[in-house]
Design a protein around this nucleic acid. Structure first.
Lengths: 205, 205, 205, 205
DNA sequence: CCGTAACCGAGACGGTACGTCGAGTCTTTGA
DNA sequence: TCAAAGACTCGACGTACCGTCTCGGTTACGG
């Protein structure tokens, strides 16, 4: 008896290379044109794919861009720099570097804006981007607890709330600095910000 | 003595009521349709005005929405609740309340997204919205210094940097909480957030 | 008090030159591409006009082609060659010459085919093309009656029926010869046909 | 001697039932949708067949519809009503009845229209439909000659020309009456038409 | 009785045109 | 000069079919 995969049975299978080509083309178009001038027809052409192929796989511009941008954040990792403060600084700098790239800037805020009126889209953003990078916060806390910099957290509910708060503060501040204030989140700024964050967490514990 | 503004010389003068009607119509359309489905033709119709009139006063959708949203934030004020922490809590709650309104949510993020590729637009946002509310931070610090909660700031450069940082952290965290995480910035969250912020500022001073 | 023409009051008036340009472009496209490969986008481009302008004036391909083809038949006239038989021969030859032109061939049958499922279209064809050329039959009969070749028609009902019959026979035979049999309706054929027609009318009177 | 059918050699043979199912489905679709809205995908679905199968047997929409319509005319036959005039009336009425059916109307004119730009298609129409029904004219003449209603035709060239002319007149008139004038070719009309035709032929002989 | 070759269904593919919609401009009449 | 009205150009939208292709699977026949 063989394992029956009832999916993907009849008909010509989808070209698996097309997905990657389309997402790459999307990022390239975001760099050159920005969100508002990006057209799906153009993306299809760049990817060497028909418009219909694109629409067969994504519901629209929003969903496509979420996926294209989400891949950018997968390269984030938590460097082990020896102390909690330095670890945070490191990852915040990485985050800032990604946000400084035009394909991230241009796309991310736009889909967030769209998500204010589209719950499915917000959920997609949360699961594809936010939730996926939450691992960094958890990993950082675990490492700090192992080092003895943070006490073990007895109440898991409270722990989750703290993780959420940290995420909102970190991501929010970097995004606001970069996109609204329009200034670079450079080393100096990150150091000041990290000092405030660490101090706040310590004193509020 | 009458001031002769050479701009307004001959011909039929612009209807001054139209501006307000257009901005109100824009906000109403933002509520009902959201940014991406808002059309200038529709706004003109709602305002009882021809499209031409609208284009004579604003360069396009982006500029119009910035102005429409900017007015929303003018109602912010710093309540005197007796202590720095309570003052901050109060203003952050007000800010969160405005951001929870659909016309703010929908419009603000969209124009920020557009601004990533349009310097003039970013400048317009900064001057119409951000800069204008920076007064709250300054006011708060002054009041806290008068109360003795904060020491006087000797270095004005350093002071400005701190104000910027606070603004990025506050605005960024609330925006991220509301729009990305999709959870309400309610009293409980604001209290936690404020505790971290105050603690961080105190310890990093 | 002046006569108020409530039509054409406010707003920019339609460019009257565009109609002619579009119809001419349509005929040109019919010649080069034929009905089935003619696209409204292409016609618009040829006419130097936006697609929307075209759709503002015609409901679709069918209506447009009817109007474009109808103009071709307006050049038909009844020559006075001295006898009924010669008059008929002359006009049938003209009709055959028009039908031999590719823009007529290609378009006319196609819209007739469409009209089998669209009563409004059939009516448009009837009033724009058929009814308009019915004048030739009436004119020919009147002239023949003046010459004494035909007796005056006492019953108008019967007269109308005869006119319809003649029209169906003449138009039908020429169209079938040209488009279905695929042979030219040349002088020889027209002479044979006319002889049969005249003979038939005389004997059935 | 063995029958060498080099065509059908190896491999799975074509399902012979599919052809009939496809042609029937085509006629059904013509009735419901008309030529222009008939799609090959839909026909395939109706016939319970894959699009590939259809394309393996017909080159395209035009060829398919010609074959589907051609079958309709095979039911025509020349009734023996005793006189030439009555025989013609009978067959013309049958022809009119077929043309009144929507699947004939809708399809026939459309492929004729297409054929104006496609010689291969015109030839297919001629051989599948026109030529095939020419037999009726020949048969009718032969019968009339046997009855003594028509003299024997000495010149075969002239005879062929006459047959062609009759066919163009009969088919053309009925088609024009039905499809362009949009009126029924009923008994009364057919009687008038036949009288003219017979009279014309007699007088021109 | 086994391979080969053509068939079959399903459905993805690259294209092309569709008809609509919105942006932003222009041209009219009228205030 | 501004205002209302509405036609204008332009370009993207998302959909629908076309005709082709690529699958896995199914018949027949011929060795």
């Amino acid at each position: 008896m063989q394992s029956r995969t009832p999916a993907s049975r009849a008909g010509r299978p989808r070209d698996p290379a097309a997905d990657a080509a389309i997402l790459a083309a999307t990022r390239q178009a975001l760099v050159e044109l920005g969100w508002s001038k990006l057209t799906l027809g153009d993306v299809a052409t760049r990817a060497g794919v028909a418009k219909t192929t694109l629409y067969r796989r994504w519901a629209g511009k929003n969903e496509l861009v979420v996926d294209a941008v989400a891949e950018l954040f997968d390269e984030l990792e938590l460097p082990d720099r020896g102390s909690l403060a330095d670890d945070i600084e490191g990852v915040v700098l990485q985050f800032a570097a990604i946000l400084a790239r035009p394909e991230a800037k241009s796309g991310l805020m736009a889909v967030v804006a769209e998500a204010t009126r589209d719950d499915a889209l917000r959920e997609r953003i949360r699961s594809s981007i936010v939730e996926r990078q939450m691992r960094l916060v958890l990993q950082g806390r675990a490492r700090a607890q192992k080092r003895g910099e943070l006490p073990p957290e007895p109440d898991p509910r409270e722990a989750a709330r703290t993780v959420d708060l940290i995420f909102d503060v970190v991501a929010g501040a970097v995004v606001h600095r970069t996109l609204v204030s329009g200034k670079a989140a450079d080393e100096e700024w990150v150091r000041s910000f990290t000092r405030v964050l660490i101090g706040g967490l310590a004193s509020s514990a």
